[in-house]
Write a protein that binds this DNA or RNA. Sequence first.
DNA 1: AATAGCCAGCG
DNA 2: CGCTGGC
Length: 372
Amino acid sequence: MNLLKLNQEILIKKFHILTLQMAPRARKVRPRAAKPNEELANILLEIGEYEKNVNLQPFKYQAYRRAAQSLSEHPEKIKRIEDAKALKGIGKRISEKISEYLKTGKVSKLMEARKNDKSKILKELTRVAGVGPSHAQKLLSEGIKSLEDLKSHQNLLTHQQIIGLKYVDDFEQRIPRSEMAEIEKFLFEKIKKIDKDYTITLCGSYRRGLESSGDVDLLITHPNYVSLRYAEEYRLKATKNLIIETKKSPIDLLKNIVNKLSEIGFISDTLALGETKFMGVCKVAHDKLHRRIDIRLLPYDEYYCGVFYMTGSDVFNRDIRKIAKEKNFILNEYCLRKLNPDGTPGKALKVESEEDIFRHLGIDFIPLEERY
DNA sequence: AATAGCCAGCG
DNA sequence: CGCTGGC
């Protein structure tokens, strides 16, 4: 009996009942404070989008987003500029905008951006999935001014963008929780039929219990696929039954699923398909819209760090990673490691559930519904 | 200096 | 191959 087999059996036993990580019931009451600064926050967000899409300034966009986030979380209406400056993420330039807003009720930079034709067109073009600020500028320079123009000049688009254009309207619609649950059930049944050892988890806001989601984010794993780190630690050798990450043997674990889901008509389009990541389009029933779906294959030993990370929220992830750092751990998408006195990371800790992450960090488990 | 890494497409 | 863009 080799070590691998033993390990696998233990893991499989342990994981079997958890194979489908059921998402929690929807939040009953979302503890939602009033948002007295929402208008201001939205103005900043809009300026941020302008910086990103028109001025190609993604970092300014991030800065505006952070500021907007601070403001919308702040429970009291900002009346004086000093109150705003005290919030995190609000520095000199942004507080100037807030000052102007407090005095006049508007921000001239935004007013100019709104009446700027170029920015209107770029905003319209970037509605297409796969068209970012850079492509949008290029399209504009070739005379494309609207989605209508794009429809008649598809030769200017990549395959991804053609699909994005085809479904622009669908992709802008949120996915109701009930439909997410239907998708989850469907995927579970179909994937288990391919191979019962697959573990699958629908992550993102759905897993946190929100009433709607932007897209479908599915993580999958299989005991036959482990990380290189894990293989080295247990001195595992790749075999026909064990695939080790980064060993250049083709991994079919994802493709098998994608092929099957395409065959039965659930997946309608493929945007990108590699060995570990699929991006595409799905539709769960005729009366439903087309939805963006990502499927990621993770090594078995890294699964729960991945699930934790992909469940978010991103703000929550940042907070937890900070706590980890304070306690001399380093947490990322793949693993949790204790830092040595010299600051280098030690061996990956065993993480076989999300609870393990909290346990290692010495903090109480934070329920899915509370991960803002 | 800013999240990170996968995939497509291009030269 | 390495780079860029998008997500």
